[in-house]
Design a protein around this nucleic acid. Structure first.
Lengths: 214, 214
DNA sequence: GCAAATACTGTACCTGCGGTACGGTTTTTG
DNA sequence: CAAAAACCGTACCGCAGGTACAGTATTTGC
């Protein structure tokens, strides 16, 4: 764990914040190195060019998100045996994490890349696409487990529901940033949770009274 | 309708495409004027600076979207008396419009602005926020009409459901662009439609058989 | 049909940034 | 203590945003 990696990490964190606030094209290397307390030469020692910076940023972002998902949905599985309940708990935890971010979610790097695709080489775009595809596959697998136990109320495509998770989060982030109200993101995640609950939970019209509320 | 407005419109269309593909910061005036077939002086005759260009682009985008929503949901109201059915028809039409775009949805300018906020003055950000707030208010009003007739199955906040509409579309656009598959956006809109349907439509468990499928 | 807006063109210039090149220096590490 | 790693300094190129301003073509109202 040399000092080099530490500097590299600092550069990536600063660059990520800048990209999420101004976009990749408008993120100036000069500003990044000024904030990181290094020189331009130092920067180019770590990254060959801006595209390599983008690649490293994306990989860092994806890894952090993977870890977060592992954490909340793993915890869900620890707390409930039923796959539906486990997923609902995970979503609740995820919503809480989103709400607890000090100054709101800083933004989704994937979305940022998506809205500036022409700035990146194919590799960067491939990383972005594959990452989201990975998350969708993960949720799809979870939904399969759920559907094996609870029959869905509406005939919806589970791939689409899995996609919806990512869509809601990305859309919620935009909404929260736009309105300067972090709770909007939390509410969107919880709304998606309601959707899943409604889709798979036994109808309250059939079994009223004390339905599961987890 | 002078020739000036025509040139102005051409500039705006070209700039919008560029901004959605590369971001505002990376959109060069030189490229825009080259494609528009005018000179730099000509550009600055129409727009004082890049920020004024951004303002005009946003207003143009918002107006076009307003028109689209008027169209599809107005048509929905023409085809059905029940507010729920009218909304569901509107959503179906919207999904069709999204799917029929020749090379997929080009992107949401609002989202683009949101991910490059630091590049714009407060006015631009205000326009973006107000526009989305306007759309949310519109959908909220529609949901109120629906809720007055059909009791929602789950106790969800209607403001959040209204927000969800914008979130799904923005998220769906990102997903579609990322995966290079326009149908993902269509499917997300239809999934939201299923959500609304499930939320307000009478339970099929209670009234099975020939439930409305519009 | 003519004057006055309108809608531009052309040229020249300043600033700042992304990026390259490369030699030198400090710091860390085996 | 030597070699590798992690930087610093400087000088330079080309492009882009933006300003300034004088001149010209085109449209429009009367």
């Amino acid at each position: 764990m040399g000092k080099g990696l530490e500097t590299r990490e600092r550069i990536l964190a600063i660059a990520e914040a800048s990209v999420l606030a101004k976009g990749f094209g408008a993120t100036s290397i000069d500003e990044v190195i000024a904030e990181a307390g290094i020189t331009k030469s130092g920067f180019f020692y770590h990254f060959r060019d801006k595209n390599e910076l983008a690649r490293a940023m994306l990989l860092r972002y994806v890894e952090a998100n993977d870890q977060l998902f592992d954490e909340v949905f793993g915890r869900g599985r620890e707390l409930a045996d039923d796959p539906l309940q486990a997923f609902l708990i995970g979503l609740k935890l995820l919503a809480e994490v989103m709400a607890d971010l000090p100054s709101g979610h800083p933004g989704c790097l994937i979305a940022s890349v998506c809205y500036q695709e022409r700035l990146f080489d194919r590799e960067v775009r491939t990383i972005a696409a594959n990452s989201v595809q990975g998350w969708n596959a993960r949720f799809r697998a979870t939904l399969d487990e759920i559907a094996a136990v609870h029959a869905p109320r509406e005939p919806v495509d589970l791939d689409t529901v899995a996609d919806m998770m990512s869509c809601i989060v990305d859309g919620g982030i935009i909404m929260a940033k736009l309105m300067d109200d972090p709770r909007r993101l939390e509410r969107q995640v919880l709304a998606f949770r309601s959707f899943v609950k409604m889709l798979f939970a036994p109808s309250e019209a059939v079994r009223p009274a004390r339905a599961a509320t987890a």
